[in-house]
Structures are given as structure tokens and as C-alpha cells.
Design a binder for these strands. Structure first.
Lengths: 210, 210
DNA sequence: CATTAAACGGAGCATCCGCTCCTGTTGTGC
DNA sequence: GCACAACAGGAGCGGATGCTCCGTTTAATG
């Protein structure tokens, strides 16, 4: 396996959860992360830091000792979520025998999760997208699924991992914009794209430059 | 023709360009719109209003007399741009005889324009997307192109105008996210989607509800 | 020109928000 | 139990930013 299943995001939680810290500090850190997760999911990344401090029953000083910057907190929390989604979707995809169903199921699952967590996705986009480690993990999962499809000749020739990743982000936008008015319509677009990805379409794709 | 080619956006320019106003006021209004267009395109919608005032050689008071709110100015300017793009793309599409080429050309043109005007698109998204009048106009253009394709049996059965509109917004995201690193890669996605839209795919699309 | 109302300009107001500082408190090792 | 370092907490700083107020200027009119 080329991707490290153990790629956590410890490198983002600035004062990493080291065991030698005081018990109350540990508790507070956990409370902050939990509260921030809730608040961000409810109100998006634009919320006042004070609200997070209030909700987690912690002072501003405490919050900022644990996370030197609002962005750092935001990123930590959001990526934790994102990683969890990715892990779920990956496991399910690996458990699916048919390569094509594994790939389509992966899309279906990640996107429907995003539909259920709009605010998180929006915040994630607003902070410049997930970190490179998250992106890399996503890439390797997709690459794995893609390879399986290619091996059995189900995927249109020439489709790259980048293409699939880009498609994922693109459909993510569709998920967001239909969330209110026409929930689930993104599935139609997903179907259309997947049909365009099947090996029944053999015309070469345009090159990736301007 | 079901769409009104004359749908302008005069209803957004708060103190509408009425002829009876003083010449300097007229000049200033034009200067503000032009400067705002430049500034927004360069720096996005988050810029300080002072910068727009400075660039247009006008005081804050003047600016706010013409546009009672920053958002109003932003919307006016952005929609003016958007309308112009739409008009161009529409004209070219109408001049294309082959229905399929008209549709694909429309996508190609609107998206490549967006690629050249990222900041505008981003601001437009940030302000909650184009106004309903813009959206309606876009809808009717797409509907026209869709109907032409359906008439000659080139479009996958069951594809709605909403689907195409959603696809457009979705690909727009792809345009933005590839603008730096892999410019033009969105064309591959467009091609994939369009292939999925061709009548060669006859499987019914899923319903639009959850 | 004189008059006047419309238009101008920009200093300043009010607010929001990320972050810090410093005083008081609490956990931990001896 | 004591001393001390680590931690908690929240008032407040700084600066960014949308918007206003009002004294000044200027175009239009006769």
C-alpha cells in the first residue's frame, strides 16, 4: 500500500498532545476541540473565537495557549473531520469487490457525507482546502481505486488521478449549491460524470494545458 | 424566444442613471463603477471601500451616495460583468448551427471566461451567487440550447435545464481550483461530463430527491 | 454674476474580531 | 503541606472596515 494509513494530523495540533502535560490542560484541550467542532459545523468558520471559548467553558487565554491562532484551531478540527470521512469511505471502498462499484461508491459516500456537513466543507474551502497531507491521502485512495478499475478495463483510458480528484471537488460544489433547494440533485451529475468516465467512451481527453 | 434579451440590471443600480442629474455626478458614478470593477477583479470582494474611493478619485461620501452599501456596489459591478459574459456566449451559441456544438461551445466559452476572471467569480460566489434575474437569464439560454439538442436527439434523455446549470456551476469550481497549478485541466472534466450527457447514454438518471 | 440646491470629500464614528497581558488559581513533586 | 511552575480567565488592546456627518465646492439656472 502506497498510502500511509497512519498519516494522522498530529503535525497540525501545535502543542501536540504530549503526555507530560497537566490533567486539566488535557481536559481543556479536548473540550476546545469538541466545542470548536460543533460551533464550526453550526455557524461556519467565521464565528467569533469568543463563542468557542464560551461554549467549551474555557477562557480566551487557555484557548490561545492550546491553539496559537484561530486558523490553526480551525484547520485542526476540520481536518480531523475530513480524515474521519476519508477513512470511512476508504474502508467501505476496500470492502467492495467490484472495482467500478468501489470507485462509484467512494464518490457517493464522500459526497453524501459532505451534503450532511455543509458548513464543514464550506469552512474547509474557505481556509484554502485541506492540507497537503490530507490531499495526498485522498489522492492515494483515489489512485488505488482508479488502478483497480483500469486493471479490469472499466475506466476510460487516459483518466488520471488528478481528474478524479478534481471531479470530486467539482461535485462537492454541486452538493453545496443544491443542498437547500434540490437536495440529491448532485447524484444526477455524479451519474452523468461517471458515465462519461466509463471505458465505453474511448475518445482521448484534451491535454491539461491552457 | 422565451428569454428577454433586454433583461438589464438597472434594478440594481440604486440611484438609477437618471438623466436629470448633474454632470459631475454622472461622471463620478461611472468612475466608481469602473474603478470598482478593476479593484474587485484584482483583489476580490474583500477590499476596503476606501481603496475603491481612492482609485476612482472620489470621496467616501460620494461613493456612498451613489451606492448605499458596499454590497450593492459589488453586486452591481459583478452582475454587469456576468451579464456581459452571458451575452457574448449566448450570441456565439446562437450563431452556431450544430446544436451540440452550440451547447458545448457555450460551456467552453463561459468557463474559459471565468478562468480569465477568477476574482470576479470568487466574489460572485461570496456574495451568494448572481441575482435571480441573472440566473433566470442563464437558465433560459441553457434551456434554449438544451431544447435544440433534444430536438435532434443528441442529448441524453431526462437531462434537465437544472442539471446543465448545476453542471456549469460545478465545473466553475473546477476552473477555480485548477487556475494556478493545472490551468486548462477543467477542459478534461468538461469533456467527460459532456460525454456523459450525450444520448449514447440512455440509462435514466436518478430522481432529484434526497 | 448671483443664487441655490445638489454634489463632494474625508475625518471620524462605531463595531467587530483576532489576539495579548497580567492577575489569580490549581495541579504536581518534594 | 509547601513552593513553584504551569495553567486559567477575561478585560482590554489594536487595527481593520463599513458607514456617516457636515462644512465646502460646484454645476445649473435666470
Amino acid at each position: 500500500m502506497s498510502y500511509a494509513g497512519a498519516v494522522t494530523l498530529a503535525d497540525h495540533a501545535s502543542p501536540a498532545p504530549r503526555p507530560g502535560r497537566r490533567a486539566d490542560a488535557e481536559r481543556n484541550r479536548a473540550a476546545i476541540i469538541e466545542a470548536a467542532g460543533e460551533v464550526f459545523a453550526e455557524c461556519g468558520g467565521g464565528v467569533d473565537v469568543r463563542e468557542i471559548a464560551r461554549r467549551s467553558g474555557v477562557g480566551m487565554g487557555t484557548l490561545y495557549r492550546h491553539f496559537p491562532t484561530k486558523d490553526e484551531l480551525l484547520v485542526t478540527v476540520l481536518e480531523q473531520q475530513f480524515e474521519a470521512w476519508l477513512t470511512d469511505a476508504h474502508q467501505q471502498a476496500m470492502a467492495t469487490e467490484d472495482p467500478w462499484r468501489a470507485l462509484t461508491g467512494f464518490f457517493e459516500q464522500t459526497l453524501s457525507t459532505q451534503a450532511r456537513n455543509r458548513a464543514v466543507v464550506e469552512s474547509l474551502t474557505a481556509t484554502g482546502g485541506p492540507s497537503s497531507s490530507c490531499v495526498e491521502r485522498c489522492y492515494s485512495i483515489i489512485d488505488q481505486l482508479r488502478t483497480r478499475c483500469v486493471d479490469v478495463g472499466m475506466l476510460r483510458p487516459g483518466v488520471t488521478t488528478e481528474d478524479l480528484f478534481l471531479l470530486s471537488g467539482s461535485l462537492s460544489q454541486a452538493v453545496l449549491s443544491t443542498a437547500d433547494s434540490r437536495p440529491g440533485q448532485w447524484r444526477r451529475l455524479l451519474r452523468i460524470s461517471l458515465d462519461g468516465l466509463s471505458s465505453r467512451n474511448s475518445e482521448p481527453l484534451p491535454a491539461g494545458t491552457i
